[in-house]
Design a protein around this nucleic acid. Sequence first.
DNA 1: TCAAAAGTGTTCTTATTACACCCATGG
DNA 2: CCATGGGTGTAATAAGAACACTTTTGA
Lengths: 241, 241
Amino acid sequence: MSEFNNFFKSAFSVDNVIFGFDEGDLKILLIKRGADPFSGMWALPGDLVYPNEDLNTAASRVLEELTGISDVYLEQVQTFGAVNRHPLGRVITVAYYSLININKYMVTAASFAQKAKWHSISTVKALAFDHNQILSACFDLLKQRVRTRPLGFELLPLKFTLTALQHLYEAILETELDKRNFRKKILSMNLLIDLEEAQEGVAHRPAKLYKFDSDRYEKLVKDGFSFELKESKKKMLLENS
Amino acid sequence: MSEFNNFFKSAFSVDNVIFGFDEGDLKILLIKRGADPFSGMWALPGDLVYPNEDLNTAASRVLEELTGISDVYLEQVQTFGAVNRHPLGRVITVAYYSLININKYMVTAASFAQKAKWHSISTVKALAFDHNQILSACFDLLKQRVRTRPLGFELLPLKFTLTALQHLYEAILETELDKRNFRKKILSMNLLIDLEEAQEGVAHRPAKLYKFDSDRYEKLVKDGFSFELKESKKKMLLENS
DNA sequence: TCAAAAGTGTTCTTATTACACCCATGG
DNA sequence: CCATGGGTGTAATAAGAACACTTTTGA
């Protein structure tokens, strides 16, 4: 047990890539560091894991302390443990991403929230630690997930238009989608409930509002259904060697 | 820094699900524990991570110490950190899986290798710690990977028959595949080189041998190609609510 | 009446499925 | 000459891609 104890000289943390969707743009919540190391730089929200805390709990806690929101979609992505990734000691970090409806976010939630700011994912520059690497792993996983699971809805308000949903997918997948094909595909899954309501106060034909039918989704999954949006295919040149 | 130090009371380990393929069966390498906790039970090979060791390095080391094999396909899967998962203290573990050509495995490699044994994945019973959970996460990821990346070849000898490849996919995906469709699909990717050699000494028409063309694969990936085998589709009943 | 976004179908092409017989070898 | 697994093609169906005009509203 004493040999064993030599290993108890390390810490672990969680870092959380918090995604939101606003104004047609995919955003993440970053914190400006006030202390060294990396003072003044933007970083992913994260914290050391308490001795009696599960990893998922720690990730939820970080998110709730920062945004005031609980009960969000949260998924573990990857663990980063390069020996020198943290200047103060050996700290491995477990990366998570979470999806929130950006409208629920309150700036006032926590003392350090004043240093937090939403950044469009396309404009994120150099981050503290290895956080750019973490961000890109999380973004990659999100791209994959959104094609195979109906997660997009987590980022939207309860009631949304098909165009909003399409723009969300376009922002995440970083591609353009055909309106008619997108609608056909989404509606053919029968996972949206037509609320028989319309947008109001827009200077164009108002769009119908839908909500996600999660009961039906659960039922379908049990029967072996899998949500799937194809990635737009890049044609491959079949030149033979 | 002293508050910070309170967190340095934890250890982390790696556990490695080592897959091999033999006699048409997908297998994993397990170790019989000789000491408490869980003495006498089978467990995944793993070890605490050395203070100056990267996570991937630790996972490779575990594999090499056990099998004598280096340079294998290795991928991080997920990190398990439930507070009480290890009876002796707070230990979070980073799970990896690796794929080896089972013929390269030497029983004599390490002192503790005598306690190691290959188990058909379908017959694995209760394992030590949370290792059943880890195994199932790794197996799930393997299933997914094998459909989207040409990893299967890592489990086969350099030269293999199409039937062997098909059986491998069937073992991993736990499904049956149509022989003609499988061959058509695989060959249409132009990722196999026909070695113009045949099996010898078999009591039936000898099969042609192929090898994987990894150069060509790298080239195709650069051009945006993605290896993809569809999962066999379960028909979904579209009963409307 | 104009601008702006909503909504809607068809055709073409490509990928997937289902399916059965002859072939080459060793014993 | 028998048993064993190797090897091959086609037709039917389903999924994906490309594409343009009319509708409804507010200003």
